[in-house]
Design a protein around this nucleic acid. Structure first.
Length: 559
RNA sequence: UGGGGCGUAGCCAAGUGGCCUAAGGCACCGGUUUUUGAUACCGGCAUUCGGAGGUUCGAAUCCUCCCGCCCCAGCCA
């Protein structure tokens, strides 16, 4: 890990770490155990990363451990594919669960026994009400519910029915097992919550062994207890479930008492972080899969070239609190740039090529120019870049009629080609439509390397690629997936999709770039950071723009 | 109208009665350096802590009332 990670971890302080510290100091716990509990029903996204950084971070800060636990209690939504992708993503983010990988489904037998225990105590009963009836009996937010007619079923009958539910005797939804708590509670989670439902479904891990499955409420806290979890950290929407979490722990013969604490989930501008919506984007083809570089999924961010450490740094910077918040995407971009600026080797790539011909440069000559791999880091060494008579420069680096503060190339003006020579634009060639298609220039042989012996200055340095020695590459430019800061705020979130979130360009890059492998990141100078896509090949390189460099000229231009 | 949670700058967020005429980061606005209009560096950016009262020598921090936002009526998690 980089210094920044260590720094963030060392300085991390939040209300949860305060609680943990107190629990350790008071002797309530000798060691702490947390867990990251994804449901394998989709891919992990940056919101999950916040949770992982918290759970694994707290464990590491206090020399405890963090478990990876799959909350696999709903077989109709869960798949092996997700179990696998989740493990890959957790590892990639840099976290290690060691031996401690668990599944709620590993506890099904124990959970069943505990359900039987509750029935025996008169604290749970089998209810025959349909889902619709149960909703009616539950009351509303402001009116109390009323007891189900089956609420006082004798223990023996409950036991018999529950056993038969398990054996597969009934149809899906025919009956449920409910805790007997308080139908008049202001907290709806306490109005006899469902503990088990009948689901004649194939489970990715337990296969067809079960016909009933525990609900989240009955599985989660109990799994925490079985694993010895001390601090069960979850998001705010579960705060209402805490009284139920505690009730179950109190009424079951469990050996350890976990406590639940809630923190606010992450929201980010210009994207959505809801598994349901992300699933919809994938299924309806608005993006090219879960790992589309525009997706906020970990697999998408990885493919776009975001370093795992940038995500960890980001998590450290946003903190952990209980207030609803929406973080500016610019903060995340900053974390990415901050890391990549230090590590990415510099290369030249022209995204939108404009040909220039250097009239006084010998035809057919190829001169190797020495260029630094990282100007701030001499240890990164140098490389050779071929310079020829015909080159490409960036279209936006030329203006026929430059405004006052534009100091790049224009007719009669001299600029520097990075590491090479000073050139002056002598003539502008246009096509029939008046589009500039070529520039005729001359160079000053005395300025080799980029400095003039007579000391004259130039106001701009341009990147360039040899038209004859450079190679073509596909470059994929990504922009925000949504054009609105808060997608869906004014209706359907799909209406806010950014039609320009992806643009594919035919760029020219220096020949050395043929050597990159998928996942390698470089900085195209003056443009941004680019990561070779898995689609890349030696003959046909493909680069994803991870993030653009800050561009104060673009800002100035808008004014 | 029941229950739960939250309100400190455009965004995130420190702060737990005096050292707060309120940290830090992002964004933004200047300026310096610069063979990346990048990076780096320097400076600016809340007399005020949702509002109103009150307690106190002293309040963002304590009390009261009010206002606003979020979550909950799945046999999802």
């Amino acid at each position: 890990m980089s210094d920044t990670d260590v720094e963030n971890t060392e300085n991390a302080s939040d209300f949860i770490r305060d609680v943990v510290r107190e629990d350790l100091e008071s002797g309530r716990h000798d060691a702490i155990v947390t867990r990251f509990p994804p449901e394998p029903n989709g891919y992990l996204h940056i919101g999950h990363a916040k949770s992982m950084c918290l759970n694994f971070g707290v464990a590491s800060d206090f020399k405890g451990r963090c478990h990876l636990r799959f909350d696999d209690t709903n077989p109709v939504k869960e798949e092996l594919e997700y179990i696998e992708s989740i493990q890959e993503d957790v590892r990639w983010l840099g976290f290690d669960w060691g031996e401690h990988i668990y599944y709620a489904s590993d506890n099904f037998e124990q959970l069943y026994a505990w359900a039987v225990h509750l029935i025996g105590e008169g604290k749970a009963y089998v209810d025959d009400l349909s889902a619709a009836e149960m909703r009616e009996y539950r009351g509303t937010l402001t009116e109390p519910g009323k007891p189900s007619p089956y609420r006082d079923r004798p223990v023996d009958e409950n036991l018999d029915l529950f056993r038969r539910m398990r054996s597969g005797e009934f149809e899906d939804g025919a009956r449920v097992l409910r805790a007997k708590i308080d139908m008049a509670s202001g907290n709806i989670n306490l109005r006899d919550p469902v503990l088990y439902r009948i689901l004649n479904a194939h489970h990715p891990r337990t296969g067809d062994a079960w016909h009933i499955y525990p609900t989240y409420d009955f599985a989660h806290g109990q799994s925490d207890s079985i694993e010895g979890v001390t601090h069960s950290l979850c998001t705010l929407e579960f705060a209402d479930h805490r009284p139920l979490y505690d009730w179950l722990i109190e009424n079951l013969p469990v050996e350890t008492i976990p406590r639940q604490y809630e923190f606010s989930r992450l929201n980010l501008t210009y994207t959505v972080l809801s598994k349901r919506l992300l699933m919809q984007l994938v299924q309806d083809g608005h993006v090219h899969g879960w790992d589309d570089p525009r997706m906020p999924t970990l697999s998408g961010l990885r493919r776009r070239g975001i370093p795992a450490a940038a995500i960890r740094d980001f998590a450290g910077l946003i903190g952990v609190t209980k207030s609803d918040s929406t973080v500016d995407m610019s903060l995340f971009d900053h974390c990415t740039r901050d890391l990549l600026n230090k590590s990415a080797l510099r290369r030249m790539g022209v995204l939108r090529p404009l040909k220039i011909v250097i009239e006084n440069y010998p035809e057919g000559e190829v001169e190797m120019i020495e260029a630094q791999n990282h100007p701030q880091d001499p240890d990164a060494g140098t490389r050779q870049v071929p310079f020829t008579r015909e080159l490409y420069v960036e279209q936006e680096d030329f203006m026929e009629e430059p405004p006052r503060k534009f100091f790049r190339l224009s007719p009669g003006r001299e600029v520097r080609l990075r590491y090479a020579y000073f050139v002056i634009c002598r003539e502008v060639i246009k096509d029939a439509n008046g589009e500039v298609i070529e520039l005729r220039c001359t160079y000053d042989p005395e300025t080799k390397g980029g400095n003039s012996p007579d000391g004259r200055k130039v106001k701009a340095t341009l990147h360039w690629v040899s038209a004859t020695e450079g190679m073509q590459a596909e470059v994929r430019l990504y922009d925000h997936l949504f054009k609105e800061e808060e997608p869906g705020a004014n209706g359907d979130f799909l209406d806010d999709l950014n039609p320009e979130s992806l643009s594919v360009l035919n760029a020219y890059v220096e020949p050395l770039l043929a050597e990159v492998g998928a996942g390698d990141t470089v900085q195209f100078e003056r443009q941004g950071y680019f990561c070779a896509d898995p689609d890349t090949s030696r003959d046909a390189p493909v680069f994803n723009r991870t993030v653009a460099l800050r561009d104060s000229w673009a800002k100035a231009k808008k004014k």
